[in-house]
Design a protein around this nucleic acid. Structure first.
Lengths: 328, 328
DNA sequence: CTGAAAGCGCTTACAG
DNA sequence: CTGAAAGCGCTTACAG
């Protein structure tokens, strides 16, 4: 089936009776001043021989990989699926492929070393340790997170998202609200907490509680259980992410608290799964595709050493489903 | 922060006062007969200069990309997350990175062309059109699907998985069973139907129904609705995939049919989401990681032109949750 | 309009 | 024990 060996520019040149350099120029469309007849001959031979350019050789010569890398912690989180989709589309527009990877099976340092070896023109880093970034030669950008000491990052407007979630509950009449947070090292959770807190703080008479969480359903469930036991006055819950919100729903159900009749839940981030839980979960949809796309854009346009701290400028949308309702 | 330009082998050689070829051999650990002193000097200079090998140059020279590609239709399906994890681990064991992509934003042919340009040592194809495969120079392997005319594929034991699902329902006393299928062009759905049919066929007095589906929750919901209307005797449903099963659960709930009291549902494939739906969905867990890992193994060990049609040899496991129970 | 040359950064026989 | 040379497949000035 597949030919035993690669066809190179030299093969085409030989077949067409011209020099490789001419073949290169014609095939890349770089040269207008070539006899139509010659052009035709070259194209035809290339086609017949099944010539396919060697991207590696081209990369070496032009010092351009034609690819971008995206490092994520894992593939099972639907949040990353959306970032990837945005990044792939933006990269394709520039003729570059995206190579997405979680580095599973690699030591972190070996992994970064492999990626830094000219294989990519830039690296979007959405997960993994940030300490190795300092030694990177390839331009990189932290995405959806900011880390002290790393001068290039692009994040979402987490404050605003949590603020909208809180605002939704307040508008429904809820006055005693709780926030189920994330792991201590997740800066996204910090910002969401800050946004939540600020939004509720504007309301006289409203109270606020903060509960530890870990971005998992189990954590959300535990938080809800504790809430029912320790703070029965709370009727509105904002979960810092989707799994926490789903877990909170479970915890409330276990405790016999009816949603949305007796308590309301909103989670930050939206994904298909929110449609499948019972009751369907109200969420705040974040512009994750735009995050991925903008990341690629910054990577290609910004000087590699320039600092950047940007917030994605795209709409955040409250998606009201069945887990929120008027108080009492 | 990052140095303005790359450090090459030549830079290290100059700094250490030796030839590049020697640096290459020492740094790669290829040469034992070198003075310890020289070795030390080379290593130290490499360290000080922050030398990092250029993978592209190495690839060109050695005609080995050090990377594998994995083409999937999209990243939002949790099934692929598990395949990717298995493939990444297996590739890492061979010192290769995995570049996973859905080719979003590319035309299918341009995409395959880009991947076939020496960037990867092999291609695992879990999605997308199969017609371009014939023109590929790089070794490839169809994964989780088999296509007529494509002589290399690795699939799961779909027959057995559906058979186990049916067997579970039969053991619970269900005699009137239905199968919610997948799209017409999904060979996995065909095999699951065959396995379902064979398992039920062995039982005297058991009846079987086949319903159209499309691997989506909406399709599963419609199928369940039709079932309640047209075949009220059916008490056991096997869904060809997870979304279909979740949709079937919704359809039954809409129709007021209680699960598992009045009807049982099992779905092929397992993922976290099965834990979150109500009632928690009984599933058949497939060895997806093993599929990814075995795919890489075959790619690296099999001669590129050799045909192969293999079924992954790893346990399939019934995961009993709350959506199945004894009949009536 | 076309060709010859140089070189991207590495590796691998081959000398010495 | 170490160096010099050739070459992987391409692209890009530079000649003619």
């Amino acid at each position: 089936m597949s030919p035993p060996q690669r066809v190179t520019l030299a093969d085409v040149a030989r077949a067409a009776g011209v020099d490789v350099s001419l073949v290169s120029r014609v095939l890349r469309g770089h040269d207008v001043k070539v006899l139509d007849e010659t052009k035709e001959r070259i194209h035809q031979q290339a086609r017949e021989l099944g010539y396919r350019p060697n991207a590696i050789a081209r990369s070496l010569r032009s010092a351009k990989a034609g690819a971008f890398g995206l490092v994520i912690p894992n593939f099972s989180n639907p949040v990353y699926a959306q970032i990837i989709a945005g990044a792939e589309t933006a990269a394709a527009r520039r003729g570059s492929v995206m190579m997405t990877s979680s580095g599973e099976g690699w030591s972190r340092s070996a992994w970064y070393e492999a990626l830094d070896g000219g294989r990519v023109d830039g690296l979007l880093v959405a997960g993994g340790s940030a300490v190795e970034l300092a030694s990177l030669r390839v331009p990189y950008l932290l995405v959806n997170r900011s880390v002290p000491g790393v001068a290039r990052h692009l994040v979402l407007d987490d404050e605003r998202a949590a603020g909208e979630a809180a605002g939704h509950l307040l508008a429904l009449g809820h006055r005693h609200l709780a926030f189920v947070g994330g792991p201590a090292d997740a800066d996204t959770a910090q910002r969401r907490w800050a946004g939540f807190r600020a939004a509720v703080g504007e309301h006289r008479g409203a109270t606020v509680r903060q509960l530890a969480g870990d971005y998992t359903a189990a954590g959300g469930r535990a938080a809800a259980t504790a809430l029912v036991r320790d703070a029965p006055d709370v009727t509105g819950i904002v979960a810092a992410n989707l799994p926490s919100g789903i877990g909170a729903l479970e915890g409330l159900r276990d405790a016999g608290v009816r949603v949305p009749d007796q308590a309301s839940v909103v989670a930050v981030h939206d994904a298909e799964i929110a449609e499948y839980v019972v009751p369907r979960l109200t969420t705040v949809r974040m512009p994750l595709q735009e995050l991925g796309a903008r990341g690629i854009e910054l990577l290609t346009t910004l000087p590699p050493t320039e600092s950047i701290a940007e917030v994605v400028d795209a709409p955040i949308e409250l998606v009201v489903r069945d887990s929120t309702g008027p108080v009492r």
